[in-house]
C-alpha cells in the first residue's frame, strides 16, 4: 500500500510530462482524435465519390452489366441532346427569374419588417414560417392552391373577373408558377438575412446622413444599400445554387411536365440515373451541372462586385 503511494505520483508525473517527441506525437493524435472522424466522413463522402462520379461519367453503364469506357462521348452526346438543352434552358430561366426576385423581395420585406410598428412580430412570423415547411409539402400544397378546378387562386381570379387559368397544367405557365412557389418558400430566408444585415448597420451612419439633410429615400439609396452589398453577393450566390438545384418542388408539383416544360437539369439527372439506369450519361450530366453552377457562381460574384462598384 505504502509502496503504491510512493510510486504512483512519479508515474503520474511521468505520464503528464513525457519527452518532447512523445508530447508532440500525443498532440497530433489528440488533434486527429478531435477532427478526424468528421473530416473523414465529410471528405470521404464527397471528394472520393466526386472522383468516382468522374470515372463513371466516362462510361456507358447501367449498374449491372460491365461498364464500357467511352471517353468523352457522353459529354459530346449531351451537347446535342435536345432534352438536356431544354432542361438547361428551363433551369437558366428559373434561375434568372428566381435570384433577382428573391433578392429584391428580401430587401423590401426586410426594410418593412425593420420598422417599429404594431403587429411587427406577427408579420415577421407569417413571412418566415413558409421557410420551415419542406419543399415536398409545399409542392403538394401548391398543387391544391393552384388547382384549375377548385383551387383558391382561380377562386380569387373568379371574383376579380379574371378567366380561370391552368397554372401547373399549362406548358406555358407551369415554370413561372414553380418559380412563384419557390419564392414563397425561400423569400423568408433572404428576408432574415437582410434583416440581420440591416440591424448590423451602425446607427450613427444613418443618423449622420439624416443630420446632413438627406431624406429617407436618399439615406436608403446612399447609406443602407451600399452597406448591404456584401450580403447581396452572398444571397445571390446562395439563391443561384438553390435555383440551379431545384428538385423537390418539381417532383411534387409537375414531375417535369406538362410536356417536359418544367424539366430541370437535376430532374433530368434523376430520371437518367435512377429511372432509366443510364448511370454514365447521368453522371456526365451531373458534372455539367457542377461546372455550370461553378461558372455561374463566379459570374454572380464578379457581376455583383462590378455592378456594386458602379452603382454605389
Amino acid at each position: 500500500m505504502a509502496l503504491t503511494f510512493a510510486v504512483s505520483p512519479r508515474a503520474a508525473s511521468k505520464a503528464r510530462r513525457p519527452g518532447p517527441r512523445g508530447s508532440a506525437l500525443r498532440r497530433h493524435l489528440t488533434g486527429w482524435a478531435f477532427a478526424g472522424p468528421a473530416t473523414l466522413l465529410v471528405v470521404g463522402l464527397s471528394l472520393f465519390p466526386a472522383g468516382w462520379a468522374f470515372v463513371i461519367s466516362q462510361a456507358k453503364w447501367n449498374g449491372i452489366a460491365p461498364a464500357t469506357m467511352v471517353g468523352w462521348r457522353n459529354y459530346e452526346q449531351l451537347a446535342q441532346d435536345p432534352d438536356m438543352l431544354a432542361a438547361s434552358g428551363h433551369t437558366l430561366l428559373l434561375t434568372v427569374l428566381f435570384v433577382p426576385s428573391s433578392i429584391v423581395l428580401g430587401i423590401l420585406l426586410a426594410v418593412a419588417l425593420n420598422q417599429r410598428i404594431r403587429l411587427i412580430g406577427f408579420y415577421r412570423t407569417c413571412i418566415f414560417v413558409p421557410y420551415v415547411a419542406s419543399a415536398a409539402a409545399t409542392g403538394i400544397l401548391a398543387g391544391f392552391v393552384f388547382n384549375p378546378q377548385f383551387g383558391a387562386v382561380n377562386e380569387v381570379f373568379r371574383h376579380l373577373g379574371i378567366p380561370a387559368q391552368q397554372f401547373l397544367e399549362s406548358p406555358s405557365q407551369a415554370l413561372y408558377i414553380v418559380c412563384l412557389i419557390a419564392l414563397w418558400g425561400q423569400v423568408g430566408f433572404t428576408t432574415v438575412v437582410y434583416l440581420a444585415a440591416l440591424q448590423d448597420i451602425p446607427r450613427e451612419l444613418v443618423e449622420a446622413a439624416t443630420v446632413d439633410g438627406a431624406g429617407k429615400f436618399r439615406v436608403f439609396r446612399h447609406v443602407t444599400l451600399p452597406e448591404l452589398r456584401p450580403v447581396t453577393v452572398f444571397t445571390a450566390v446562395w439563391q443561384t445554387i438553390t435555383a440551379m438545384q431545384l428538385f423537390d418542388l418539381i417532383y411534387t408539383t409537375t414531375r417535369g411536365g406538362p410536356l417536359n416544360s418544367t424539366q430541370t437539369i437535376v430532374y433530368y439527372i434523376y430520371e437518367l440515373a435512377f429511372q432509366t439506369q443510364r448511370l454514365g450519361y447521368g453522371a456526365a450530366a451531373a458534372y455539367v451541372l457542377f461546372a455550370v453552377t461553378l461558372l455561374l457562381t463566379l459570374v454572380v460574384i464578379w457581376y455583383s462586385r462590378r455592378r456594386g462598384a458602379e452603382v454605389f
Binding site: 468528421a38 473530416t39 465529410v42 471528405v43 463522402l45 464527397s46 471528394l47 472520393f48 465519390p49 466526386a50 468516382w52 462520379a53 463513371i56 449498374g63 445554387i241 438545384q245 428538385f247 437535376v266 439527372i269 440515373a273 435512377f274 448511370l279 447521368g282 453522371a283 451531373a286 458534372y287 451541372l289 457542377f290 453552377t293 461553378l294
Partner: peptide
C-alpha cells in the same frame, strides 16, 4: 479539404454514393 467539399453539389454525389 473540408471547405472545398462545400462546392460539390449533392446531385453529383448521389450516383456514386448510391453505388457505394
Amino acid at each position: 479539404a473540408v471547405v472545398a467539399t462545400v462546392m460539390i453539389p449533392m446531385q453529383l454525389l448521389m450516383i456514386p454514393t448510391y453505388l457505394m
